[in-house]
Computed example of a mutant assay.
Amino acid sequence: MTWLRALAVIVAVAGALLLLASGAGVRLGLWTYGTGFALLRYAAYIGIAAAVLALVALFLPQGRARWIAALLAALGVGAATAYLPYSVQQRARSAPRINDITTDTEKPPQFKKPLPYGGPQVAEQQRKAYPDIQPAVLASGPEAAFARALAAAQAMGWDIVDAQPKEGRIEATATTFWFGFKDDVVVRITPLPAGSRIDVRSKSRVGRGDTGTNAQRVRAYLKRLN
């Protein structure tokens, strides 16, 4: 059954390569994000097939000793290849179909070139899904708060597009890890009688949903501020 063991390894490698290609192709402009998601799904199927083939081959005693390391590797690679698309699918199912998240749903921070907000319907979905996303309140004045907000944005790895201390506004572009999607972020600093309030908004440029990416980004940013 040498052919079965070899097949398990080949299928595992093919699945892993397809998984990597799904994101790399979108980043390089070789295909659309729709094709990228399709390749991600196919990679999961191939990963499952590789894991099953490796398990079957591991139970075949004849000549197993020579293949044990390769088959265990094929099993691990196949399982990992299947898990990533599965985790993305689970996040997509649990997240609301919105792609615009903000700490102020009544008066969202606005970009220099205004981007429309979805209104009460989007706000209600966000409140139900992400009730923890709230403005940050700092004890420092607007100038110090602005510097802190800008430093946090830079620490997030965002590309700063515009920073206006007098207006209390910071705009940036965030790039997602796998597909390289470009999302727009704006931070607003508002003076308070005893400190400053910081609001943030993160909006995807493509798609109706975001698999929770914008909410994760806003949470991570607020954590850096506090």
Rank of each mutant, 00 (worst) to 15 (best):
G15N: 04
L60C: 09
P61I: 06
L17I: 10
W67F: 12
P109A: 04
N214T: 04
N99D: 10
W67S: 09
L58A: 05
E124C: 01
L4Y: 02
G25K: 05
V186Y: 03
L4V: 11
K223W: 00
V122Q: 13
A57H: 05
G63M: 04
S94P: 00
V77N: 07
P109F: 01
V11W: 10
A6Q: 15
V11A: 10
Q126D: 03
D100L: 03
A145R: 01
A74R: 05
A16Y: 11
R97D: 14
N214K: 03
R5P: 04
E106M: 01
D199G: 08
L4E: 10
Q126A: 02
L18W: 03
K166C: 00
P165N: 09
A95L: 05
Y221H: 04
A123W: 02
R41V: 13
L17N: 01
G141P: 03
R93V: 09
F177P: 02
T35P: 00
P191M: 04
R91A: 15
G36N: 06
R41T: 14
P135Y: 04
P120V: 02
L225N: 01
Q134Y: 00
S22I: 05
P191H: 07
D184M: 01
A144R: 12
L4T: 11
K166D: 15
G78I: 04
D159E: 15
A145H: 03
P116G: 00
L222K: 05
A44T: 07
E106R: 12
Q90V: 15
P142E: 05
T103E: 06
A21N: 02
G76S: 11
T2K: 10
T213H: 10
P109L: 03
A74F: 04
T190R: 14
D159A: 15
A151P: 08
P116H: 01
R169Y: 03
A147Q: 15
Q89L: 13
T175P: 00
P165K: 10
S196I: 07
V77Y: 09
A147T: 10
K182S: 13
L53H: 09
A44P: 08
G34Q: 14
T2G: 15
A151Q: 12
A139I: 00
T32F: 05
L20D: 01
Q62R: 15
V77F: 07
A54M: 06
G168T: 08
T211W: 12
L4P: 07
G63I: 03
A220V: 01
R201N: 09
R205C: 02
M156W: 03
R27S: 07
G209P: 05
F179K: 04
K112M: 12
P191L: 04
R208I: 13
R169E: 02
K182F: 11
V218L: 03
R5F: 08
A123E: 05
V122I: 12
L17Y: 02
S94F: 00
Q125H: 07
I98V: 12
W178L: 14
N99L: 02
E124V: 10
V200N: 06
